Amino acid sequence: MKKSLIAIAVLAATSSAAFAQSNVTIYGILDAGITAERGGAQGNVTKVTSGAASASRIGFKGTEDLGGGLSAIFKLETGVKVDDGTLDNTTSTLFNREAYVGLSSKTAGSLTLGRQYTPYYETLRDVGDPFAMGYAGTAKNLFPVASYMTRNSNAVVYKTPNLNGFTGAVSYSLGEQQGDASAARQVGGSLGYANGPLNVAVAYNMKNNDTTVLKTAGVGHNSLVAANYDFKVVKVFAAFSKDKGQGSAPINGAASATATTNAFGYTFAQSADSQDALIGLTAPVSEAGTVMASYIRKNDKESFNRDADQWAIGYNYALSKRTSTYVAYAKIKNKNGAGYTVGNNTEAGTGDKAFNLGLKHSF
């Protein structure tokens, strides 16, 4: 009897110790389908693609309760390609999507260090884009959210707790250029307010393009206002961005942020002075189905006047809480030598029109 009581006491102590350790979750998204791209210089292409609606990924995240409302948090997330099983980036970076560790407080907010999303990108994704950066209609096709505008490495990010509907974030990404603390650094921030059907936010991003060698590359500035309002029968979206300076409008999918030989066969340089406007909607058409639509205009303020317009429509149907199927179509009209392409959440695209049909499962 005494041995049994001792065994129970040891088991209880062991269980308590286990619960005090980090709570780790393995999660992911598997998204695959058919994409048909039209209008490219090299001709039409139809392919099995990965991550059209949401980038396919696997991740690990966890928390440890430190007491007093304070927790240690971490996240490691890598992108994968379901169509061929490889990483979804060309640099072979293992955790290319997110990699950070930090502290979170229920009353003081969170502070994290590592590779993380920019406040500008999160604002457009969560508030302004009815396609949530996915499908053929993604705002990535025309808004300046490519490359360093999506995520920062070497970033320190502070996020406030929710204060009566108000939330905020500040991001500082160190350039890590020897002898010059300002070179290659990136600073961003956002402020949002959500109350009932209304969700509105503003965001800012600044990127210094200088290096230890080149001191005259210039600074890019981006200012964004985004909002949505849920009327129940339809949810309307709007976003407006002002992009000024070198590096303020990196081209989606380009090897260089400044210029690329695009899908239409000619050199297409980014604008250093442009504006982006979006209007869109989502509407439930059944208990499980949702229609998405948007119109985006890229207004190039430079003398080249390389404007572009995008129209997009999509439909998502939830087969369950974790599995959905979707279809989407978008078309871009380029003007005066502009060469923007219709991509999706993961790919930049090869032409001015694209169609997606796919299946997504979350775990």
Results as ranks from 00 to 15, higher is better:
Lys159Ser: 15
Asn195Met: 08
Gly245Arg: 05
Ala18Cys: 06
Lys2Pro: 07
Leu66Pro: 08
Lys232Val: 13
Asn154Pro: 10
Ala146Pro: 00
Asp180Met: 02
Ala277Tyr: 14
Ala139Tyr: 07
Asn356Arg: 09
Asp126Arg: 07
Val213Asn: 11
Arg115Tyr: 06
Asn96Lys: 04
Thr14Leu: 15
Val82Glu: 05
Ser274Ala: 15
Thr212Met: 00
Gly189Ala: 06
Gly79Ile: 05
Gln42Val: 06
Pro197Gln: 09
Tyr229Trp: 11
Thr290Val: 15
Asn316Trp: 10
Phe131Trp: 03
Glu302Asn: 11
Val10Pro: 04
Leu87Thr: 14
Ser320Asn: 09
Ile29Trp: 01
Gly280Ser: 12
Trp311His: 10
Ala308Ser: 13
Leu87Ser: 14
Ser147Ala: 13
Val213His: 03
Gly85Arg: 01
Phe19Lys: 02
Val10Ser: 04
Ser274Val: 01
Thr258Gln: 08
Gly134Tyr: 12
Thr150Lys: 11
Phe304Ile: 11
Gly128Lys: 06
Met149Ala: 13
Asn199Cys: 02
Ala257Ser: 11
Gln177Lys: 04
Phe355Val: 14
Val291His: 01
Lys47Phe: 05
Gly134His: 05
Val285Asp: 05
Leu359Cys: 06
Leu191Trp: 03
Ala17Asp: 03
Gly102Pro: 09
Gln42Phe: 04
Thr118Arg: 10
Val342Pro: 03
Lys335Trp: 05
Glu176Asp: 11
Phe143Asn: 05
Glu64Thr: 13
Gly102Met: 07
Val225Trp: 09
Ser320Gln: 09
Gly196Ala: 10
Asp307Val: 05
Thr107His: 07
Tyr204Met: 15
Gly79Glu: 02
Tyr204Asp: 10
Gly102Leu: 07
Ala41Thr: 02
Ser56Cys: 04
Tyr172Glu: 03
Tyr340Lys: 08
Tyr100Thr: 00
Gly253Trp: 07
Leu66Ser: 08
Met133Tyr: 02
Arg185Tyr: 10
Leu224Val: 06
Ser303Leu: 08
Tyr100Asn: 02
Phe304Trp: 06
Leu94Trp: 09
Val291Ser: 07
Ala239Gly: 13
Pro161Val: 09
Ser110Tyr: 01
Tyr27Met: 06
Gln178Val: 15
Phe264Gly: 00
Ile6Arg: 04
Lys207Leu: 06
Ser71Trp: 08
Arg115Met: 00
Gln177Ala: 02
Tyr172Leu: 13
Asp31Pro: 00
Arg97Leu: 12
Gly85His: 09
Leu281Val: 06
